[in-house]
Design a protein around this nucleic acid. Structure first.
Lengths: 133, 133
DNA sequence: TTAATATATGAACATGTATTCATATATTAA
DNA sequence: TTAATATATGAATACATGTTCATATATTAA
């Protein structure tokens, strides 16, 4: 099969080094774009230090918005905006007690992912030395 | 101790509902800012669908840049830029064979994290139907 | 040497996003 | 009811980031 002549996307790859079998297999096994975006969005939530702070804090115990605001030393608005992101990602849940809203982690899955992040950072310098900059 | 009177950041939290013990404990246990940023940067790498595609592809077998470019149907430049991000995060390694550069996952830790992402997406609707938009 | 080619990269641009500010909503107290 | 307050949120802004375009680098072939 000659896939060079039928390649309509000339700008994408005009080289001859393609391992056709590999490319074909990878394309067949690739998850659908929508799934990949969902996975990306999921990890993206863990990609901000403010949200990480909130998650680590809630990993210890449930906290109201005001506690979080004080603990993180940020504005209540900023905390609340990030809490909404965490809510929409189902990483935290909340309960209301009067006008106070208590947030907590939605499940232990979150803690296990956080741990993997910490672990990766912790063991990072193991194979290669890393000068702390 | 009255921490209201000594609170110099008036804009941050001017309420009385603070559970001092909780806040204090969380602040003491909180990871340093630099560490939190490093963890965030680590997860951020998994937060883009292009990089996820590359990682899933390399999870099957090592591939040269051209293979990846063809498999993802993207420009070589875009792939190469993302490969640099993955390289700098130590998620992929590479070997050169002539002018061809073969990339592969740096370790199995990466696969296990990817699996957690897939798993989270897969089980997402299990406990409750989506409430918030 | 020169030509061809696989990959890398700087700059520009467009889009995404975290924070701030102002304000809205909801609950309690008076 | 009104006042106080805990939280939520829309809009604006500033910054981060992914892709494209052009080009540089490195390697092989001629």
């Amino acid at each position: 099969m000659d896939n060079k002549s039928q390649n309509t996307k000339n700008d994408l790859c005009e080289v001859d080094c393609i391992h056709e079998g590999v490319v074909l297999q990878v394309k067949q096994n690739m998850l659908p774009d929508e799934t990949l975006h969902e996975i990306g969005d999921f990890f993206k939530v863990f990609g901000d230090s403010t949200r990480l702070k909130i998650l680590f804090a809630l990993g210890e115990q449930e906290m109201c918005v005001c506690d979080l605001t004080a603990a993180l030393e940020m504005t209540q608005s900023a905390v609340s905006h990030q809490l909404r992101v965490l809510r929409q990602s189902r990483l935290v849940k909340y309960r209301k007690d009067g006008k106070i809203v208590y947030y907590s982690l939605d499940d232990d899955h979150v803690v296990s992912i956080l741990r993997q992040g910490v672990s990766h950072i912790g063991h990072r310098g193991d194979k290669n030395e890393r000068t702390e900059s």
